[in-house]
Write a protein that binds this DNA or RNA. Structure first.
Length: 620
DNA sequence: GCCGTTTTCGGCCCGACTGTTTTCAGTCG
């Protein structure tokens, strides 16, 4: 069973226990365990076999650990079987409908025998719901509405898709007279890869004017509700947006509250209680006395710690880290000095080689790697001969666009058996080699892992692109043994990519966190297929920040000379394997033209500084 | 069912809103 499947089973148990009127704290324990398993980067199957690993996770004790081991091993556990015998899983699924929780669904099932959405719709239309205990005519109507909404809703939206309209609406509200501050809170502010809805917060300005501006924005399709302090709308793209107008004195407390995550807030409230205080969206109070709430910083400080960046607020240990002053200084977009994965119109990109290099230079990058596809990925993909002529094209663009280091790279396909798509000599001739998988993503874990490990053993490889191969909302990632892959990457000095394409975010935040823990270097690349897509870099940075990564964890934050030295050093770690795999052991040298452009004195010379030196900030 | 610089028993985050009730349960975030 995968982590998601174990989490689903635990959450289902929680719902079924609640339907039966079970101990609410026991219900909560199952729900919390589901969350913990869901957010683990390591495979639960691995955790289950290693002594004491499950029990070491917060919220999982001896009992739940045993049940999780059962689930991993057999796909079920005693209590799950017993509950499922009484309550079908399709009944549990009814709790996904808005306004229907375990209690009401339990009543529907026990009294009316409702099992499916179709049953439910029929019963509601026949007016059978209104007479049930705790139900009424209004709830009956709302159930019908919820069924209709659920059938047309497409679920969560990519952060990048919500990005422009969210900012447009926020700017529109910000323009209202008297408005002092506007923030887009919620998972949007935590930069999750997808958002379910948008929570916008504002303070200052007259309610009538603020709400009027909000509900009349051109992207609004339907006004769901409008009040003094809160209004809700549905946009033409289906997204629901709530706007809350909060008092200035409590703005920070409200921003904290509506940014979440819920689990982070719960931990903060517990700390408040330990200190004899109470925290809610109106502020931090001690008895009747208001302690803090104007800014987030003020609230965190009053609770005894520093401000925590929203990307880290997921109850993954960030509060404890902050107590010890060990929060990472998260990487920022401005820290990136190069982009090492992009395509041009020579394969499946839209813009020319020169246009891509110029766009990278305009973004202020010091270096860029052009990495076309190899022949297995597509008809126009590069073979050995095409790679040779490409070298001349790269050399020509270096002359035409001075002031940026242009690396001749390739995104070479990992074939089904783990061999690379081009011969060793061709790969050895390159400055930068990414290996990626574009086919046969359906292999089982054993085959897929062996395939990737073999590819990582090739001495010419510098990085692995979109390692899991997932596309959000379209396909799951490969069934890789990520522990084994990351261990090999760490051992061989191969960087793992955070692919910034918004529908990839691959590595994910959890996987990137695991990679860092295992000592793997990360590159943040855009995989841009046009000059505009170089802007996706910010989404890759969001993923890295959610993973808790600092500038030092990211290879392409290094200034060029340090980057080149790091690549060489990592390459030397692979030397022993070079003799076996290739007769020519060669470290790529920068061209004369490139040395001239950076003022470097001679080949092989070590750069003066080591480690991430602070250079002049680039214009954005 | 979990957890412990008061604790192995007795707690477990908090408030708004809705719709049902006639003081509160259920749901949501």
């Amino acid at each position: 069973m995968t982590n998601a499947e174990v989490a689903r089973a635990l959450a289902n148990i929680a719902v079924m226990l609640e339907m039966e009127g079970g101990n609410p704290f026991r219900v909560r324990a199952y729900r919390e365990a589901a969350r913990v398993i869901q957010t683990q980067a390591e495979a639960v199957a691995t955790l289950a076999v290693e002594e004491g690993r499950l029990e070491s996770l917060g919220g999982i004790g001896k009992d739940l650990a045993g049940k999780i081991r059962d689930l991993v091993k057999t796909g079920s556990t005693k209590i799950y079987d017993e509950l499922k015998a009484k309550i079908p899983l399709e009944v549990v699924a009814l709790t996904e409908l808005q306004g229907l929780g375990p209690k009401r669904v339990g009543t529907l099932f026990q009294v009316l025998g409702v099992k499916t959405r179709a049953d439910l719709e029929q019963a509601a239309r026949a007016g059978k719901l209104r007479d049930l205990p705790g139900f009424g005519e209004k709830i009956e109507q709302n159930v019908l509405k919820a069924i209709a909404t659920a059938s047309q809703r497409s679920g969560r939206m990519l952060l990048a898709s919500a990005w422009p309209v969210a900012h447009a609406i926020a700017d529109h509200v910000r323009d209202v007279r008297g408005v002092k501050q506007v923030d887009i809170a919620g998972s949007f502010r935590r930069r999750k890869e997808t958002v379910g809805d948008l929570d916008i917060l504002a303070c200052g300005g007259a309610s009538e004017a603020v709400m009027g501006a909000f509900t009349s924005h051109p992207s609004v399709a339907e006004v769901l509700g409008r009040g003094e302090t809160k209004s809700s709308v549905r946009l033409v793209n289906g997204l629901q947006v709530d706007l809350r107008l909060v008092p200035e004195a409590a703005y920070g407390a409200a921003l904290l509250y509506f940014t979440g995550s819920k689990e982070h807030n719960i931990e903060l409230r517990k700390i408040a209680i330990e200190q004899g205080m109470s925290l809610n969206e109106y502020g931090l109070t001690r008895g009747e006395k208001f302690v803090a709430g104007r800014t987030e910083e003020e609230v965190y400080r009053a609770l005894g710690g520093p401000w925590i960046p929203p990307e880290l607020r997921e109850a993954r240990g960030e509060i404890e880290l902050s107590r010890y002053g060990r929060l990472p200084r998260l990487v920022e977009l401005e820290d990136l000095r190069g982009d090492l994965h992009m395509h041009t119109d020579r394969t499946d990109g839209r813009d020319s080689l020169e246009a891509m290099v110029r766009a990278a230079k305009d973004r202020g990058y010091e270096y860029v790697a052009l990495t076309e596809h190899s022949k297995a990925a597509m008809a126009r993909g590069f073979d050995e001969a095409r790679l040779k002529s490409s070298a001349g094209e790269i050399e020509a663009v270096r002359k035409r666009v001075p002031g940026i280091e242009v690396l001749h790279g390739l995104e070479v396909d990992i074939l089904a058996d783990g061999a690379l798509d081009l011969d060793d000599d061709a790969l050895e001739s390159l400055d930068w080699v990414i290996v990626s998988i574009h086919s046969r993503l359906d292999q089982d874990a054993k085959a897929a892992t062996a395939r990737v490990l073999r590819a990582l053993d090739h001495p010419a490889v510098h990085a692995m692109g979109h390692p899991l191969g997932r596309v959000i909302g379209t396909r799951e990632g490969m069934a890789l043994d990520l522990d084994a892959v990351l261990a090999r990457a760490a051992e061989r000095g191969i960087a793992m990519e955070i692919n910034s394409q918004p529908d990839r975010a691959d590595l994910s935040d959890a996987h990137a966190r695991l990679a860092r823990e295992k000592g793997v270097r990360i590159v943040i690349d855009t995989d841009a297929h046009s000059a505009v897509q170089l802007g996706f870099a910010q989404f890759g940075v969001f993923t890295a920040r959610r993973a808790g990564l600092a500038r030092e964890d990211i290879l392409n934050t290094l200034p060029y000379l340090n980057f080149r030295e790091a690549v060489r050093r990592d390459r030397r770690r692979r030397e022993p394997a070079v003799a076996a795999a290739s007769p020519v052991a060669r470290t790529p040298e920068p061209s004369v033209a490139r040395r001239r452009s950076t003022g470097e004195k001679a080949p092989g010379r070590k750069p003066a500084a080591s480690g991430p030196a602070k250079g002049p900030r680039r214009p954005r």
